[in-house]
Design a protein around this nucleic acid. Sequence first.
RNA 1: GCUCCCGUGGUGUAGUCCGGCCAAUCAUCUCGGCCUCUCGAGCCGAAGACCCGGGUUCAAAUCCCGGCGGGAGCACCA
Length: 492
Amino acid sequence: MEKLGIKVEERKVEKKKLPPLPHAEKGEVITRFPPEPNGYLHIGHAKAAFVDYEYARMYDGIFILRFDDTNPVNERKEFYEVQKEDLKWLGIEWDKEYRTSDNLPKHYELARQLLEEGNAYICTCSEEEISRNRKLMKECACRNERNISWNEFAKMEEGEAVMRLKGDMKSKNTAMRDPVLFRIIEHPHPIHGKRFRVWPTYDFYGAVEDSLSGVTHPFRSKEYELRDEVYFYLLDCLGLRKPYLMEFSRLEIKGMPVSKRKIKPLIENGKVMGWDDPRLPTLKGLKRRGILPEAIKEFVLSQGISRAESVVVFENLEAVNRKMLDGVARRYFFVPEPVKVVVENAEEMEVMLKYHPSIDMGVRKIKVGNIFFIPAEDASKLKQGDIFRLKDLYNVKVKSKNDEIHGEFVGKELLPGVEKIQWVSHEYVEVKVMIPGLLYENDEFNENSLKIVEGYGEKNIREVKEGEIVQFERFGFVRIERNGITGIMAHK
RNA sequence: GCUCCCGUGGUGUAGUCCGGCCAAUCAUCUCGGCCUCUCGAGCCGAAGACCCGGGUUCAAAUCCCGGCGGGAGCACCA
């Protein structure tokens, strides 16, 4: 027993967990995911949303979905719904939902307070002047001499004035040099129409909303780091509660653009098919490619919440996805670049093949005669006299080979060391498979990132539901679209 | 340029706050072997890391200083 050196160990597959949250008590944690309703969600949003969601669940807390819709020129009505659908697809459920724009009256109230208490001022300098003075660390006359009230400000024209925090123009942190808190935007809002024209900036509503909504642990990505000081200073001025702010690095994937800023031009220039292009890390794109929401969850949470920036390879997501898919995907035969095989002494029959090698998912029927097709790649390796096996069927000996292969039936029993090749019979359907690759190779746009493989699939592929993910044996996992005519390869 | 953040195997990550239990976790990748009528999955095993240099300490991945490298910000966008 022991001398065989066999150790019997309990192997617990512990679910990957996020590290404990600092200053967190069970039942007391409130988190929030605050997208701007201006586009489709991508895997970077998924990371933020899952971190927020998971921590709320881990501590029996509350998870809020908040739409940061305070720039009317950016927001579009459809995206409120689209983003919610994306979140639902991920399996994320939120306890509360609201729009930041609904709280503008409260924001105005706080703005007046800041003004009255001398913590902010209306500035009529031009954008260039503001920028210049920040560089020179110089205070302007608006801050010290003039004294425009909120009411006057509210009547001014777009671009004429902004409300600024009295920070510290001498601060080493440029974000503290009197950041703009409110500006006038003359543009209808998708929800409120023309009701408001003075809109808060991120520095203002981000801090204020987190505080007022009771959020205890707000997360944001690292590029906001320098604004932390503004965040806390502002809340101090307003006498509001300060949440425990945390930042993590943005998710980066090698060869894939993970940001709206980079994805949008690709779509506009026709470099990709749209927001749901399977080469894109948008949730719509990943879904179309056959990536499961659970896989996205495991993957993004495995990235953790550290500030260390890193570039992950997509294969890591594929690995997670593949393992999840393996147990649920039905198997079919697909023959890329088919080569005809004519088999002598072939029996005409109907065979039953299992949908899954080890899990009982039932069987499918295939009619076979003496005509088959096998992949060109496998055919090219065959020589006259070789024996190969039509997988799950029988063995064939190559009698002659040119454009097609002529062979003969040489038995049903499994022979050791014989190649098993997937095949289709004379009853096949034409199938195209899109194979998404990386959009960038060594920082260069890859014009050939989408390959298309044409081939024959077994007729049963027609029965596959739109959107189902199956495995084409010895080929890869493929999500089926358009009644079996097209597939999109997720990965091997 | 200035300011801030970051630096653990090929890749990602845990550990860093509160130095010792870290001769460093987990996953992926790679390489062997087993299993299997898939090139998938599963199982077993191997290889592989604390950016560099000083300092503090009985003891440093962990604290301090310097260097190097990477990233971000310097918007009336978030």
